[in-house]
Amino acid sequence: MTLTLAEVEHIAQLARLHLSEEEKIRFREQLSAILDYAARLQQVDTRDIPPTSSVLPPRSRLREDEPRPALPQQVILANAPFPYQGYFRVPPVLE
């Protein structure tokens, strides 16, 4: 199968990636080749086979519900690229 350029653009938008024209063409080819390879999975009969949700038997061990100190605000904001008075600052969302 070959992805269309429009499909590549749609996936990029879902993934929040801005692709150059060159990247779109390259990813179109490469992703199509990988998906072609993956198509062999369609041959496998998986009727009545449950999907794997966990490789180990599920357990339900819950931790005690005890309040614990969290990291201080200034420690968290130390890695923020654009902090502002204790907030994460972003461009305007609404005009």
Binding site: L14, A38, Q42, V44, T46, I49, P51, S53
Partner: peptide, 22 residues
């Protein structure tokens, strides 16, 4: 993103998780 997107989820991701069981 493609493998999880609407319309392809079952064919790709869903089928992969079943073959993983095998």
């Amino acid at each position: 993103t493609y493998a999880l997107s609407a319309g392809y989820y079952e064919a790709y991701y869903g089928q992969a998780q079943k073959v993983r069981t095998l």
